[in-house]
Nucleic acid binder design. Structure first.
Lengths: 237, 237
DNA sequence: CGACCGATTGATAGACATCAACTGTCGTGG
DNA sequence: CCACGACAGTTGATGTCTATCAATCGGTCG
């Protein structure tokens, strides 16, 4: 964790520049003066894979890595209810109705902001509040998409949809448009907990997709999608 | 639909008073002057059961009735991804990533506001934007709760959870604390589409709950829950 | 090396879906 | 008034998808 009270305005702007553009405009809603103020109040964190993120009210930009949100039933059954991929934005103002655990799937780098600073800026800049609302609604859309998948898709459609979702979020750019490859940041158990399946079913369906030629698998975690459009056929929607 | 350009300030405040308190403070965030302005721009609508609600950007208070949100897969499979019960607040700024259909399950009464008026008031009153964000996050919590149910609960747990959810939202008040009764505003097909089951399974599980004494059913749609706490045991969480 | 963990694969079981028959209710029209 | 069909719902017989139980494999770490 690195404080930044010493940085100069020019430095700050340089630091923010790289993620500002990628963040879908969250910081982009701010005036330069506010950006400087925010950056000065920000702090960087590195979090190891497997660590639970504190659930205080702070907001963070996810600079790198993948984070999962899980909800548990009383007897230990687990459901992953969401992911964050860099460069996404984490943070939950107001407390949730139900406990949700936030955990790093990979090593993670965060740029965190105290809640008080953001809250004050919302008052000064309604556009920032609008961005937060837009972001929350985007998460809501995602959750509802996965509700449809969990309720109505077959195991194999779930897997196909899941692989495409991951690919869209972390696939290395520079691939020809209709194919891609990436490292899965999840274990089979995590995939199962996300898709409402067992690890055995996940494994079987991945194997089937592989033998069908729809995907290639190297070393368990490295996935290639030779034809994205072909995989989309298998999604059910 | 009734325009209200003629009403006086005192009338407006009287009209709003009854729902303002119930709405979890959405209009409560407004100053009296704004409330008057908003009420003057508002219009009442009555919508028949089974009708699809227009997906323009307008916001509405749901004064009475029940509304469902559905998402469809390409081959006709359907998933209900949310409900609105009076007195809730409907309205989606920014367009959704995926098409979602909004439909009245019962006859519905709405008090609608043009988007432009609300948007301007957000600029004037950041607290209103905060309320909208809080509301969206509440919907997100609900969606994630149902993700866990869809992915990890058994059919019978899903039914129990569903009945409790409906009861909490529409049960007539005045019941002794641990029992309640209500009319289901949904068909078995709707319940199935919400819980990711078939109508036959829904019917069977309802019958089983009835023969277990956990619920009583009169005329297919009138449900009594003799013991809420006993039903909560059957929810899995 | 042995223990452990993630993953794969096989055999079997079970929960829920599918197919089908039937009931009761309602509205329509002869 | 009753016949008729349409529709919501229930219940039974059977099928199938995915879970469960179990064995095995490869990699990693102490």
């Amino acid at each position: 964790m690195t404080a930044r009270h010493d940085v100069q305005q020019a430095d700050v702007l340089a630091i923010c520049k790289s993620c500002e553009t990628r963040q879908g405009g969250l910081c982009g809603a701010l005036k330069a003066r506010q950006l400087v103020e925010l950056a000065k109040a920000s702090s960087r964190h590195e979090i190891l894979a497997g660590t639970e993120l504190p659930n205080d009210g702070t907001y963070s930009s996810l600079l790198s890595g993948v984070v999962k949100l899980t909800r548990n039933l009383s007897d230990g059954r687990q459901q992953i209810v969401g992911f964050y991929f860099a460069p996404d934005f984490l943070g939950r103002p107001f407390e949730a109705k139900r406990p949700i655990k936030t955990e790093a799937l990979t090593n993670v780098a965060l740029c965190s902001f105290p809640r008080t600073v953001i809250d004050r800026m919302i008052d000064e800049t309604p556009e920032l509040g609008r961005q937060l609302l837009r972001h929350a609604l985007g998460e809501l859309d995602d959750a509802r998409d996965w509700m449809a998948a969990l309720g109505r898709k077959t195991a194999s459609e779930k897997i196909a949809s899941f692989l495409l979702m991951v690919a869209r979020n972390i696939a290395a750019s520079g691939h020809p448009g209709n194919s891609t490859s990436f490292d899965l940041p999840l274990t089979r158990a995590d995939i199962a907990d996300f898709l409402g399946l067992t690890i055995e079913t996940v494994s079987r369906e991945l194997s089937r997709l592989r033998s069908d030629g729809a995907i290639r698998i190297a070393n368990k975690r490295q996935i290639s999608l030779p034809s994205i459009s072909q995989l989309e056929q298998r999604c059910g929607d």
